[in-house]
């Protein structure tokens, strides 16, 4: 995985509460066996009309959205299904971070695993960022992962929490599976001391 340190970009503002993963990518697109083309299905039911044509008034269909790197959602982003297709679709569209006041647990975990930053900010700062990016769609935000800050154009720094291990992995491009594989001795020792609690093979 590519290390992530800092990046700057414009935002798409979608300040709807409780955006669930069925909206981020509807289930009918989950029949794929790879990750290709997920970005085309991002928010499909909000983005396309019955004929499959882009709805011009939906934010993702505005020309500015094509270059955006950050999605600003409403409170409680990513609830519902555990589909990792949701962060894949967001990344596929070009997003590198999502800003909300809080994230559903599974979505946050999935996002961190694939290098999409879930940036949890305080409600006042959230409101401020929405107002700013709505008034000026060209406004650039800078995400500084090491400092755990989002920098606004006027110099204001908004901080966000992040799990220290996930941060370490993202900053250094370390993949978590590699770390788990390196724990092989400890896992083998655990298995020696505990007989399997169940077996799925019938004898």
């Amino acid at each position: 995985m590519e290390p992530i340190t800092t990046f700057s970009g414009t935002c798409v503002v979608l300040p709807i509460e409780n955006i669930d993963t069925d909206q981020i990518i509807p289930a009918r697109f989950l029949k794929a066996t790879d990750k290709q083309g997920m970005g085309d299905h991002l928010f499909a039911d909000w983005r396309y009309d019955e004929g499959g044509q882009p709805k011009p008034d939906f934010v993702l269909n505005q020309p500015e959205a094509q270059r955006a790197q950050i999605l600003i959602g409403g409170h409680n982003f990513g609830c519902g299904s555990s589909r990792e297709h949701a962060p894949w679709a967001l990344q596929g569209f070009g997003f590198r971070a999502v800003i909300s006041t809080y994230f559903a647990d599974i979505f946050r975990n999935n996002a961190l695993k694939v290098g999409l930053l879930p940036l949890m900010v305080a409600p006042e700062a959230h409101g401020q960022i929405i107002a700013l990016c709505t008034a000026d769609p060209g406004a650039q935000l800078t995400v500084d992962l090491d400092a755990q800050q989002v920098l606004l154009p006027d110099g204001t720094a908004v901080s966000f929490p992040i799990d220290p291990f996930a941060k370490y992995c993202l900053l250094n491009g370390v993949d978590q599976l590699g770390f788990l594989l390196s724990q092989d001795d400890a896992i083998a020792q655990y298995e020696d001391q505990h007989t399997a609690r169940v077996t799925t093979v019938l004898h």
């Binding site: 555990s82 990792e84 999935n110 695993k113 694939v114 978590q176 599976l177 788990l180 594989l181 298995e191």
Partner: peptide, 19 residues
């Protein structure tokens, strides 16, 4: 519930990283 990255973690190591 877990995501697909974690599905791979469990397949390969029978373990998960959890807070």
């Amino acid at each position: 519930g877990i995501g697909t990255s974690e599905v791979a973690h469990v397949m390969a190591t029978q373990c998960l990283l959890q807070n």
